[in-house]
Design a protein around this nucleic acid. Sequence first.
DNA 1: ATCCGTGCAAAGTCTTTGCAAATTA
DNA 2: TAATTTGCAAAGACTTTGCACGGAT
Lengths: 171, 171
Amino acid sequence: MAKQLTDETIATAENLFREYLRDRGLKYTHERKTVLREVLGNPDHFEAEQLLVDLRQAGRRVAKATIYRTLPLLVNCGILKQVQFGDKLTRYEHTFGQNAHDHMVCGHCHKIIEFSSEDVVRLRTVLASRFRFHALSHRFQISGLCWECVQAAPAGERPFVPTDDAAPRRR
Amino acid sequence: MAKQLTDETIATAENLFREYLRDRGLKYTHERKTVLREVLGNPDHFEAEQLLVDLRQAGRRVAKATIYRTLPLLVNCGILKQVQFGDKLTRYEHTFGQNAHDHMVCGHCHKIIEFSSEDVVRLRTVLASRFRFHALSHRFQISGLCWECVQAAPAGERPFVPTDDAAPRRR
DNA sequence: ATCCGTGCAAAGTCTTTGCAAATTA
DNA sequence: TAATTTGCAAAGACTTTGCACGGAT
């Protein structure tokens, strides 16, 4: 789970973003700052549309196009990470000041369990070297059934094949 | 890499699909059979559109809608597996008669290296049990740079942050 | 003063859906 | 025969883009 960021951390992120932009002759606009703040304040996974709605509710008007144009910038400068759970929606989560983590997705209730493990990174390194591959990041998603759903649906009751249909439904 | 399937394996897949359909009162139509065969003959990852084109070239007319309606069925019965490399495209690969495998994606040349490791499955099991999660499948994708691209772009030359922009471009 | 960015709406892409005609069990 | 499918085209959902105006350095 994402933890609450301190003002200090937020400031650091802003600096990072500002520098990233400056380095390539881009501008640190009011809108980009607004999006960055909203993004950092967002604890879990979110999608572009969600961000738009949240901003609207907060009384901050940022055009949808601007959001779609800003998110990739945040991804490129490392503040945001894209994650996909199988449906068409592009989701994001900020990794700034957080531990890298992976996900377990329940194919029945769609619950998402975040976990982090050094073992994953270690294994990734081992595997990469085997192919002379320079690993920089990874995504590890485990699909299956959470405890509650296993209880509710005893083995043998109905065969379960996890599919992407089982991913969180769009809206 | 996908290996060439034997006629026998293909026949087995057909039986599996037919039974899957029968069990839920669905029909094993000519079109579904056509799609299944094309899918099984497809060695690597493919997308719905690609499948349509291939079928057209082979002189087999199957409506696009039918393909989009058939693919999920094949996923549900376990013959196909969805994979996503970060772009919006839904890709598939058949897992029938193949070893489960994961991917390394080069963020620069977009090459895809397939690998399989028992360690991944073992780790997944360990992690799952830690959360009382019943793991059924997983996706492990390592992003970074392949050897050739590392050579071409010495460390320090240009900072590289793997993003989903680096995913294979759509057509 | 110059670029760059924003908004808006139109255009794109990929996917889904309604419906009548055609098939399958 | 009864129910499911197919094709086609229209509709949808999400994202990208062109352009004129406004804003940042």
